[in-house]
């Protein structure tokens, strides 16, 4: 019940700050863009769009979300409430994954994707991974500029190999690289089972790190610039 309330609160927060409106507009824009591309480009373009935007939105927005919560002292209230850190982290991850998966579904249907279940699994895993990374970084920074800078290396590590992999420009052993596994799933291609297991392990590790970082942030709640 408590988790459900928090999840709804997070979704309302995101709606209030225009996330749903923004992604509604972006979805329409992406559909128009994809439909205007040559047929041979469409499939790969859709995979890149889904992986780099709706799936990665947690990495883009989490800094601003947590900084706003910090500046409004919301996290201080969470710290003294019965709410548990695990619920907070899960709520952040799920609320953003919902938007990502909704957008991915619409784009997939509009572009006749190869396999919707695989695409949704890939989008969900990417979304969880990026949101957890966003949470970890956001707990350690005090301004949005710092967050933007800190996410750049992660974007390079996560996006460049995945895009190269999509165009089959990476060595075969990199099929097990989590970003590439997610890209394979989103593109509806054969994926590495070992890679999928590695992705799950990575998510579990990120979850533990995010859990510890949020717990520490709640304990050390201090001043912050937004």
């Amino acid at each position: 019940m408590r988790f459900k309330t928090l999840l709804l609160w997070d979704m309302k927060f995101q709606a209030r700050y225009g996330f749903y409106l923004l992604y509604g507009f972006l979805t329409v824009f992406y559909i128009v863009l994809l439909l205007s591309l040559p047929l041979s480009w469409k499939e790969n373009a859709a995979a890149i769009l889904i992986y780099s935007d709706p799936a990665a939105m947690g990495l883009f927005f989490m800094g601003a979300i947590i900084l706003l919560e910090k500046s409004q002292r919301v996290t201080s209230f969470f710290a003294v409430s019965p709410l548990r850190v695990i619920e907070y982290v899960c709520s952040k991850v799920l609320s953003l994954s919902v938007i990502g998966m909704l957008v991915a579904t619409v784009l997939a249907v509009a572009t006749n994707c190869r396999s919707l279940p695989l695409l949704l699994l890939g989008t969900f895993l990417s979304s969880v991974m990026f949101t957890l990374l966003g949470v970890i970084i956001a707990t350690k920074i005090t301004s949005l500029n710092q967050f933007i800078l800190a996410t750049v290396p992660i974007e390079i590590i996560a996006f460049v190999p995945a895009v190269l992999h999509l165009f089959k420009m990476t060595p075969a052993f990199l099929r097990i690289y989590p970003a590439n596994v997610c890209m394979d799933l989103i593109a509806g291609r054969d994926f590495s089972l070992i890679g999928l297991i590695l992705t799950m392990i990575l998510i579990a590790v990120l979850f533990v790190v995010a859990y510890k970082c949020v717990g520490k942030m709640w304990q050390n709640q201090g001043g912050v610039k937004l």
Binding site: Y17, F19, F61, A64, L67, L144
Partner: peptide
């Protein structure tokens, strides 16, 4: 009105650059 909305608007506003694609493909 704040930086969170600023991030969302940035995403939207940066789409302005994509108009350059159109003469090449449409």
């Amino acid at each position: 009105s704040n930086k969170l909305e600023g991030m969302a608007v940035t995403k939207l506003a940066s789409l302005m650059m994509l108009g350059a694609f159109v003469p090449y493909f449409v």
